[in-house]
């Protein structure tokens, strides 16, 4: 070692200069409950049972989501649509009870894939809130069915679309993209 290195103090001074630089740097922390990070358009958050454009429930209680579910979190009871309920349910059969056990759910999104009626989705913008009581674990239709005054839309559906949307937003074009039509 040279004398400079053996003296040790110059090295300490350089090290301390580095730490001082970091002291004044912008912090990388995202302060979670106050500031939330955008998790992307394909994030799988909480479930929602969609309605169609006229406000009728799309679900026909076919049970494919329950079959597809690897965690067996979904259960439902089917019922037949009565006369005069045409404005409530889209087809002749509907789910009288639709329950998701949020302790079992692993948010894999297979129910979404399985649904032939595009009725069940995992929202990209909302989490399941923290629960501290067992009564809050099983979510019924009251929590799951979409509110017509506050509809859930997703602007981009794939990573490619999201990237394209980000590009368009960055260039100042198209601030709002019309969501893909649901058949």
């Amino acid at each position: 070692m040279t004398l400079m290195e053996r003296a040790y103090l110059p090295a300490i001074a350089t090290g301390m200069a580095i730490t001082l630089k970091h002291f004044f740097k912008k912090k990388v922390t995202i302060e979670y409950p106050e500031v939330k990070r955008y998790l992307g358009p394909v994030f799988r958050g909480r479930h929602i049972l969609k309605r169609d454009a006229e406000g009728r429930e799309r679900c026909t209680a076919c049970g494919l989501c329950a079959v597809a579910c690897p965690a067996e979190a979904i259960s439902m009871i089917a019922a037949e649509r009565e006369k005069g309920e045409e404005t409530l349910y889209r087809e002749e059969k509907y789910a009288a009870v639709y329950e998701v056990n949020m302790l079992r759910c692993i948010f894999c999104g297979l129910c979404e894939e399985a649904c032939p009626k595009q009725a069940v989705y995992l929202r990209h913008d909302e989490f399941i809130p923290v629960f501290n009581d067992r009564n809050q674990v099983i979510w019924g239709k009251d929590l799951l069915v979409e509110d017509m005054n506050n509809r859930y839309t997703r602007e981009a559906w794939t990573k490619e679309e999201a990237r394209l949307l980000d590009m368009k937003r960055a260039n100042g074009e198209a601030t709002n993209v019309v969501p893909r039509a649901i058949p």
């Binding site: 730490t19 970091h22 002291f23 740097k25 912090k27 990388v28 922390t29 302060e31």
Partner: peptide
């Protein structure tokens, strides 16, 4: 400690 390690 936090500030030096880029934390809050």
């Amino acid at each position: 400690a936090g500030f030096i390690q880029d934390r809050m």
